[in-house]
C-alpha cells in the first residue's frame, strides 16, 4: 500500500516512527515491570516508589517457582491441552464456518445466532449444570474433561465465517462446475485462501486456551492435572503474595507465547495473499 522510495526517509515516516515508538514504550512498560519485579528480593516489593531496576537482583525467584508447585508438570499439561483445544477449535469452527457462509440450509441463520448466544452468558451462571455433566461423564481430573468441552468455539465460527464471506464466490462456483463437493471446496479452496484468518484465529485460540482459568479450575482437583493459570493463582495467598515469585512464574508462562506469536504474525500477514480475480 505504501509507495516505494529508495531511501526510507521522509518527514511522514519519521513522524510515524516517533508516534509508534512513543505508544510502544507505554505498551512495553508492564512487560518491563513484570521482568523487573520478578528479579526483586522481597523487601523491595513493598517500596512506595518502586525502582525499575532492582537494587539487588534475586534470580532465585525463578527457581522458587518450581519449588512451590510442580510447575513442570503443570506446564506440560497446559501444552497438551492447548495443542488439542487449538486444533479442535480450528477444525470444527472452520468446517461450520464454511457451511454458514457458503451453503444454504433451513434454520441456518437462527442456528448461527444461537451459537453466538453462547458468548453472551457469563460462565459463572452455567457452571453447576456443566459440572454435573462432567460428573455424569466421569471426566473430572482428566485430559478429555479439560479439552473436549472447550473445542467448540462460536467465536471461531463467526470470525472464520466473516473471512469466508469476503472470499469471492466465483472460486466456489468454478469449483462446483468442475464437480467438487462442498467438503472438497472447503478443504482445497477456502482453507488455503483463508490462511491469514486461520493463523489469526489459531493464535487467538491458543492464547485463550493457554490463559483459560475457570474451566481448568473447575474440572480438575489434583495438582497433577492443573494448568498454568490455576498454578499461577496458587501463588496468590489469602493475606500475602510474593509478587516477585508470582511474576517470575507469569513470565515463564508468557515467554513461549511470544515465541509462538513471532512465528504466527508472519503467517498472518505473509500467507497466501489473494491475487484478485482473473
Amino acid at each position: 500500500m505504501t509507495t516505494h522510495r529508495p531511501l526510507g526517509f521522509s518527514i511522514r515516516r519519521i513522524a510515524l516512527h516517533g508516534l509508534l515508538i512513543t505508544i510502544g514504550i507505554i505498551f512495553m512498560l508492564p512487560f518491563i515491570w513484570s521482568i523487573s519485579t520478578s528479579l526483586k528480593p522481597m523487601n523491595e516489593l513493598f517500596a512506595v516508589r518502586p525502582h525499575l531496576i532492582p537494587n539487588t537482583i534475586r534470580w532465585e525467584n525463578y527457581s522458587d517457582v518450581f519449588e512451590n508447585i510442580p510447575f513442570l508438570r503443570i506446564y506440560i499439561n497446559s501444552i497438551i491441552v492447548t495443542i488439542f483445544r487449538t486444533i479442535g477449535q480450528v477444525a470444527i469452527a472452520s468446517v461450520a464456518a464454511f457451511a454458514f457462509s457458503q451453503l444454504r440450509f433451513p434454520g441456518r441463520d437462527v442456528i448461527f445466532v444461537a451459537l453466538l448466544a453462547g458468548l453472551m452468558v457469563p460462565d459463572q451462571v452455567l457452571i453447576v449444570p456443566r459440572f454435573i455433566i462432567m460428573r455424569e461423564f466421569g471426566w473430572f481430573d482428566t485430559y478429555q474433561g479439560l479439552i473436549i468441552p472447550l473445542i467448540f468455539s462460536s467465536f471461531g465460527v463467526f470470525m472464520i465465517r466473516q473471512y469466508f464471506l469476503g472470499i469471492p464466490r466465483d472460486f466456489h462456483e468454478a469449483a462446483k462446475l468442475e464437480g467438487a463437493n462442498p467438503l472438497q471446496i472447503y478443504w482445497q479452496i477456502y482453507m488455503p485462501l483463508a490462511r491469514p484468518a486461520l493463523a489469526a484465529f489459531g493464535f487467538l485460540a491458543l492464547l485463550a486456551s493457554w490463559n483459560e482459568f475457570f474451566w481448568g479450575l473447575t474440572v480438575t482437583s489434583s495438582m497433577d492435572m492443573r494448568v498454568i493459570p490455576v498454578g499461577l493463582a496458587l501463588f496468590q495467598g489469602q493475606y500475602f503474595t510474593n509478587n516477585a515469585v508470582l511474576m517470575a512464574a507469569a513470565n515463564l508462562a508468557t515467554f513461549p507465547l511470544l515465541i509462538v506469536f513471532l512465528f504466527f504474525q508472519k503467517q498472518l500477514v505473509e500467507g497466501v495473499a489473494l491475487s484478485g480475480l482473473k
Binding site: 479450575l217 482437583s221 489434583s222 495438582m223 490455576v230 493463582a233 496458587l234 496468590q236 495467598g237 489469602q238
Partner: peptide, 8 residues
Amino acid sequence: KQIVPWAD
C-alpha cells in the same frame, strides 16, 4: 490433597 487457589 486438593489445593484450590484462595481467591476461588
